[in-house]
């Protein structure tokens, strides 16, 4: 009991910056936006309380549903692809190989570019009419024109963009692999374990907290994909709303349409959805994530 008490005291000293940040920077805007979700607020005049009107409006809003569909497809498809890629390359690059530093940097480069304005022009170069992909496919007699302007293909170009920027999760995986004590490998080697056994008995179990971390944070990030969609579609979410990501729609409502009340309501619905998905992940994590401190 006395030890717990002492730890509690120490904990609150450690948490001073966090507390200050919560009160000053995070909580007030968070509460403000929650309040705004129940108001009609056009930024220029003061907010007017309007009950659940914003939430009711969503059900009849075709754009809202389009945004939900686009975002859901994106999260479900791009996250496994991106993480799978990142893990695979992290494993390959973790083993001794000449020129590792070069590869690591090379693979990380796209992530550095990923959100710059230049990507819009770049992507058009690759997926546009007469772009790289179009020309390659026309060799096989496929004339698809611009992928970016084809409502059934445009979202896939954004998924490719996300997979292409797998650098961040890869770096985190690499750091995680480095964190695994060499002794543990030695221990199973003494028991005569081969590469595969080392992998399944040491690498994967010890990496699960990091896999879990990447899964949670990349999922949250994917739900909130904004910059890439904004850059590639020029902020429209076109063609035919096929790249109208949820946060892009929030942005349009809040910053272009000045409907900050509705935008806040949309944001809280998104937050609830992310919260739910994250909670499910946490529940499931009990079955597969292994912590060294258990």
């Amino acid at each position: 009991m006395s030890k717990l008490h002492r730890q509690g005291g120490a904990a609150h000293v450690f948490l001073i910056p966090w507390w200050l940040g919560l009160v000053l920077v995070t909580a007030v805007p968070l509460i403000a936006s929650l309040y705004l979700a129940f108001t009609d607020y056009n930024i220029l005049s003061s907010p007017k309380f309007n009950g659940l009107e914003n939430f009711e409006r969503m059900f009849q809003d075709d754009y809202f549903w389009a945004a939900v569909r686009v975002t859901a497809v994106y999260v479900v498809v791009s996250i496994p692809l991106q993480l799978g890629f990142a893990l695979l390359l992290a494993l390959i690059l973790d083993r001794g190989l000449r020129g590792l530093a070069f590869y690591r940097s090379a693979f990380y480069l796209p992530s550095l570019l990923g959100t710059s304005v230049a990507v819009a022009i770049l992507w058009r170069q690759i997926f546009g009419d007469n772009g790289l992909v179009d020309r390659a496919l026309s060799i096989f007699g496929l004339e698809l024109g611009s992928w970016l302007q084809n409502p059934s293909l445009s979202l896939s170009t954004l998924i490719v963009l996300n997979v292409w920027t797998f650098g961040s999760p890869m770096v985190i995986f690499l750091a995680g692999l480095r964190q695994i004590p060499e002794e543990l490998y030695e221990a199973v080697k003494v028991d005569g374990a081969g590469i595969v056994r080392q992998f399944t008995a040491v690498t994967i179990p010890l990496l699960t907290p990091i896999i879990f971390f990447n899964l949670i944070l990349q999922t949250i990030g994917a739900f909130q994909t904004f910059t890439q969609a904004h850059v590639v579609s020029g902020g429209t979410g076109g063609p035919a709303n096929s790249t109208l990501f949820y946060t892009l729609y929030i942005y349009q409502q809040g910053f272009t349409n000045f409907d900050m009340g509705y935008a806040s309501a949309l944001a809280w619905v998104l937050m609830a959805a992310i919260g739910l998905v994250t909670a499910v992940h946490f529940v499931l994590s009990r079955y597969w994530v292994f912590y060294g401190d258990d």
Binding site: G128, S146, Q149
Partner: peptide, 10 residues
């Protein structure tokens, strides 16, 4: 021009 040829509206 088609939307494909001009890469979208605007």
């Amino acid at each position: 021009l088609t939307l494909s040829e001009q890469e979208g509206m605007g």
